[in-house]
Amino acid sequence: MITYEIPEILKKHEPIIKKTFRYSNEIHFKREETKPWESKLGGCPYLKNIKDYPMDEAGEPMLFLAQINLADLEKLDELPERGLLQFYVANDDMFGLDSPVLVRYIEDYEENEEHLLKKNPYENEEYEGNLPFSHSGKMYFKTREMPMSSSLDLFRETFKNELSEAEYEKLSDDCYSSNSRVGGYPYFVQNDYLGFDDDDFLLLQLDIDDECGIMFGDAGNCVFSIPKDALRNRDFSQVVYDWQCC
């Protein structure tokens, strides 16, 4: 597990910093073939029938961004222990920014490839051209203990009046929460338009990655978050989505 060591300059503020700690599962990508039920970036989602593939408001097949097999994750008690989470956005040149998104939870799944689709039925040159990555791949996870992200409005509310200017700058630099992850805190390239706070859970962040060529716009990333009470009720219609770039 990756742990956060509080710098000496901030030791006297250890209690307030530790109070913000969350666990995340940091994602690393490899360009590998995946089985239908595995954690993956792009490719073919877990599907039994082509009719199950979701369409956007324009009647176009949605872009399949990622699938998380929840059994791969650790120390994220808010999530179900098993099942699959699939992430879809509208198929347009803005990666579905202004359109409804779909996060599909599949609680029970089978591991029999004979009964499942092996290739994304809508993957063609036009579809691939609208994806925010150049290669699909398999996801690998590593647990991380992380303090609050300095890109959040909540970070400023929590620390601005508690720390000196030098201390605040040091903690801000340490809490630059980029990289792809499930759980923990998001990183917003520009502003925290989602107003992410203590009652929210980070379902997925996809950030710049060389292995699979992830890039939202100009050096950007995307965030899917959900209120914790909606997550407890397995109400994924409450997911909010944003992507930002430089």
Rank of each mutant, 00 (worst) to 15 (best):
Ser164Gln: 07
Phe87Met: 07
Phe155Leu: 11
Pro61Ala: 00
Asn49Arg: 12
Ser237Asp: 15
Glu107Ala: 14
Gly83Asp: 07
Leu204Ala: 04
Glu33Arg: 12
Asp218Met: 11
Asp173Gln: 15
Phe141Glu: 11
Asp210Phe: 14
Glu167Gln: 14
Ile16Leu: 14
Lys75Met: 09
Cys212Asn: 08
Ser225Lys: 02
Asp98Thr: 05
Leu116Trp: 04
Pro61Ser: 00
Lys118Gly: 08
Tyr122His: 12
Glu57Ser: 09
Gly43Leu: 09
Asp209Leu: 13
Arg181Phe: 07
Asp173Ser: 15
Glu60Met: 02
Leu76Cys: 06
Glu5Gly: 05
Thr34Val: 14
Asp218Ser: 13
Ser178Cys: 09
Asn161Ala: 14
Tyr168Cys: 12
Met146Ala: 10
Gly220Arg: 02
Ser225Gln: 06
Met148Phe: 10
Pro61Trp: 00
His13Lys: 15
Phe188Thr: 05
Met139Leu: 07
Ile50Cys: 09
Ala219Cys: 14
Cys245Glu: 10
Thr34Ile: 06
Tyr122Lys: 04
Met62Ala: 04
Val239Pro: 01
Lys30Arg: 15
Glu60Lys: 01
Ser150Cys: 14
Tyr176Asp: 14
Ile214Ser: 08
Ile6Thr: 14
Ala219Gly: 05
Leu202Trp: 11
Tyr187Pro: 04
Asp72Val: 09
Leu84Met: 13
Leu84Val: 01
Phe216Lys: 01
Leu202Thr: 07
Asp77Leu: 11
Gln238Ile: 11
Lys11Thr: 15
Pro36Ser: 03
Lys228Trp: 03
Asn124Thr: 08
Leu41Gly: 01
Asn49Glu: 13
Lys51Ile: 10
Phe188Ala: 04
Lys75Gly: 02
Asp56Arg: 03
Arg232Asn: 06
Glu81Ser: 06
Arg82His: 12
Leu73Asp: 02
Glu38Tyr: 07
Asp207Arg: 06
Gly183Met: 06
Asp218Thr: 09
Cys222Gln: 04
Arg22Asp: 07
Leu116Arg: 07
Asn69Leu: 03
Pro100Cys: 04
Ala90Glu: 11
Phe21Trp: 13
Tyr88Ala: 01
Ile2Ala: 14
Leu202Glu: 08
Asp56Trp: 05
His135Tyr: 03
Phe224Gln: 14
Asp93Lys: 11
Leu79Tyr: 06
Thr20Gln: 07
Gly183Asn: 10
Met215Phe: 03
Tyr105Gln: 08
Ser151Phe: 01
Lys228Glu: 01
Leu154Cys: 08
Lys118Trp: 10
Glu167Asn: 05
Leu73Glu: 03
Met148Gln: 12
Asp218Arg: 12
Arg234Ala: 07
Leu154Asn: 08
Gly59Leu: 01
Phe216Gly: 00
Asn91Val: 00
His135Cys: 00
Gly83Thr: 09
Gly137Asn: 08
Ile2Thr: 15
Tyr185Lys: 04
Tyr127Leu: 00
Gly184Trp: 02
Ser149Thr: 11
Met146Tyr: 01
Lys170Glu: 15
Glu123Asn: 01
Leu63Ile: 05
Met94Ser: 12
Ile6Lys: 14
Asp98Ala: 07
Lys142Arg: 15
Asp235Ala: 13
Phe201Lys: 11
Ile2Cys: 10
Cys246Glu: 09
Glu113Thr: 13
Asp93Pro: 00
Pro147Ser: 06
Met94Gln: 11
Leu97Asp: 02
Pro80Val: 05
Asp192Pro: 10
Gly217Pro: 10
Trp37Tyr: 14
Asp108Ser: 12
Pro186Lys: 04
Ile27Gly: 13
Gly217Gln: 06
Leu79Thr: 02
Glu81Arg: 06
Ile17Ala: 12
